[in-house]
Simulated scan of single mutants.
Amino acid sequence: MKRARGDGPRIELRILLQSKNAGAIIGKSGSNIKRLREDFKASVTVPDCTGPERILTIGADIDTALECLMDIIPSLEDYKQFSDSDFDCEMRVLVHQSQAGCIIGRAGFKIKELREKTGANIKVYSTCCPQSTDRVVAISGRPVVVTDCIRNIYKLLEMAPPKGVNQPYDPHNYDEYYAHDYGGYTIAEGGRGKLPRGAPPPPPRGGVSPLMSPQMRGRGAMNGNMGARGGRGGDNRFVNPGRGGSGQGFYGGQQNFAQDSMGGMGQQGMMFGMEQTTTTQVTIPKDLAGAIIGRGGNRITEVRRQSGAQVVIDEALPGSNDRIITITGTQEQIDAAQFLLQNSVRKFSEKY
């Protein structure tokens, strides 16, 4: 029996869009967004942003939210030329990093099952959106296929509520250089926004992590799988951004596992229990170590407690002004730890 509109728990469906699509959703003088709210009895918002990305949020029960999305899709810039719904589209859904695992499943089983069941193409990006705990799930196919896939994903999310730090993505923090790593849009794609005057050219892949400020640069490494895809070449020593190298290992602050469309199948790290563990290293100026460690180690202890990751800060090498932070855990734990470390730098760096 089909559930009546308005029945069921209320959800917030958040879609990462190109800014150029906002006008079609809002309509002249807000006429279309007002119609959507009235017709579907839903909360529909697409807040302004000066960058190339916006977030469409639809608040309603899942069936109503997806009906509303089905109404919106044909009006978007890339699809408005089609006269019917027989076209391929892509929606990029935002989910909390701790929920990505329930979409992927053990050894990628669940994401494979979703693809076979719905017929949709699904890609789970492993890098969180800048300064957030959100990850992008890109779903493509016919509009009805995409919305059906989203429905199935939200059934899974109901069984796995978000855990840990929750920092929703703010598109004002978009990162032009790493947009394709976290599933975002560039200025050319989004149709809006500009780089700051005098901004440097994009760094090589594997420079600053989206969750890290320019003060915290890193390299990723897979336990037990040196030479994995996802970064520039390098040996097992710490190397400067942009310098490749020979031998095993790779350099890549944001751990470019987002390129794996199997949603994690490319990660061949060591398995502890039934969870996959990876290691990332970032460097900070040694003057900032106090901001992260805190008095008596209180702040670094709190980072470990909240994230569940192992976080070790090495002493600076002789003649070096940098200290290396090694973070070990699941991808979700590492992302949470990086977010908390960045917060410590922002809040306390002026004291040191």
Results as ranks from 00 to 15, higher is better:
Asp7Gly: 00
Pro9Cys: 01
Glu12Gly: 03
Leu13Ser: 01
Leu17Cys: 09
Gln18Lys: 15
Ala24Lys: 08
Ile25Arg: 04
Ser29Asp: 08
Ser29Phe: 09
Gly30Ala: 12
Arg35His: 14
Arg35Tyr: 15
Val44Gly: 04
Thr45Arg: 15
Thr45His: 13
Thr50His: 05
Thr50Glu: 11
Thr57Arg: 09
Ala60Leu: 01
Asp61Met: 01
Ile62Ser: 03
Leu69Ala: 08
Leu69Ile: 04
Met70Ile: 07
Ile72Thr: 09
Asp78Trp: 07
Val93Tyr: 02
Leu94Gly: 02
Val95Met: 14
Gln99Ile: 00
Gly101Ala: 14
Gly101Phe: 07
Ile103Thr: 11
Lys110Asn: 15
Lys110Thr: 15
Lys112Glu: 15
Leu114Lys: 06
Lys117Glu: 14
Ala120Lys: 09
Ile122Phe: 10
Val124Leu: 14
Val124Cys: 13
Pro130Asp: 06
Thr133Trp: 07
Ser140Asn: 12
Arg142Ala: 11
Val145Thr: 15
Cys149Arg: 06
Asn152Gln: 15
Asn152Ser: 12
Pro171Ser: 08
Tyr174Met: 06
Ala179Gly: 00
His180Met: 04
Thr186Glu: 02
Lys194Thr: 09
Pro203Gly: 10
Arg205His: 03
Pro214Tyr: 11
Pro214Leu: 11
Met216Trp: 07
Arg217Phe: 08
Asn223Arg: 08
Met226Gln: 11
Gly227Trp: 04
Arg229Tyr: 06
Arg229Ala: 03
Arg229Cys: 03
Gly231Asn: 02
Arg232Gly: 08
Asn236Phe: 00
Phe238Asn: 01
Asn240Asp: 13
Pro241Gln: 06
Arg243Met: 07
Gly244Asp: 06
Gly249Ile: 01
Gly263Lys: 06
Gln267Ala: 01
Met270Leu: 07
Met271Ala: 03
Gln276Tyr: 02
Thr279Ser: 07
Val282Leu: 14
Ile284Gly: 11
Leu288Arg: 07
Gly290Val: 13
Ala291Glu: 07
Ile293Trp: 06
Gly294Arg: 12
Gly296Val: 11
Glu302Gln: 13
Val303Trp: 02
Val303Cys: 04
Arg305His: 11
Arg305Met: 06
Gln310Asn: 11
Ile313Gln: 03
Asp322Trp: 13
Arg323Glu: 14
Arg323Cys: 14
Thr328Glu: 10
Asp335Cys: 07
Gln338Met: 12
Phe339Gln: 08
Phe339Ile: 04
Val345Cys: 10
Lys347Arg: 11
